[in-house]
Design a protein around this nucleic acid. Structure first.
Length: 153
DNA sequence: GCCAACGTTGGC
DNA sequence: GCCAACGTTGGC
């Protein structure tokens, strides 16, 4: 089983939206490095932290579970969708998504500012300069370090 | 709202 | 294949 961190802007789709929906496609990824992870590496049963980006307190707000492995991102085919990409065709899809299901919402935010101060997180792309991955793998040690901070949950 | 960092595009 | 221009991400 693998561990992930997945970013979303709460103004667009936040942890509360996922809690309401239960299960949602994690669509709209338009970065090839991230596409490859979705398509080739994410498996049913993997766990992921839900990260709120581009908001007053960016950070980890909960946990979700991958409940469907990579499949073609339907939003790329829809001209009305904000993530529409005319270069992706159903016969030859360019973009992929997974389905995620809600597991837990933390009582507080495990903020990026706090994560940056933890030596255990120094190797995580999240805290490194210029990182632009909207989905990134975490080591088991990083996952356990964060989830063991139960005072946040 | 600003802007650094980085990815993509397209002319040549 | 180079690289300038442009678009996007996302913290602050």
């Amino acid at each position: 089983m693998a561990y992930w961190l997945m970013k979303s802007e709460p103004d667009v789709f936040g942890i509360d939206d996922l809690q309401r929906a239960g299960v949602e496609p994690w669509d709209g990824v338009r970065n090839y490095q991230v596409r490859n992870m979705i398509r080739d590496r994410m498996q049913v049963g993997d766990l992921a932290f839900f990260y709120h980006s581009n908001c007053p307190v960016p950070g980890i707000v909960g946990i979700m579970r991958i409940c469907r492995a990579g499949y073609p991102d339907q939003s790329a085919f829809d001209p009305q969708h904000r993530s529409f990409d005319p270069k992706s065709e159903p016969a030859n899809p360019r973009w992929y998504c997974v389905d995620v299901e809600f597991v837990t919402k933390f009582r507080g935010v495990i903020s990026l500012a706090w994560l940056k101060r933890q030596p255990q997180m120094a190797e995580c792309p999240l805290v490194q300069r210029g990182n632009r991955l909207s989905i990134m793998p975490l080591t088991e040690a990083q996952w356990n370090f964060i989830s063991d901070h139960s005072q946040w949950r």
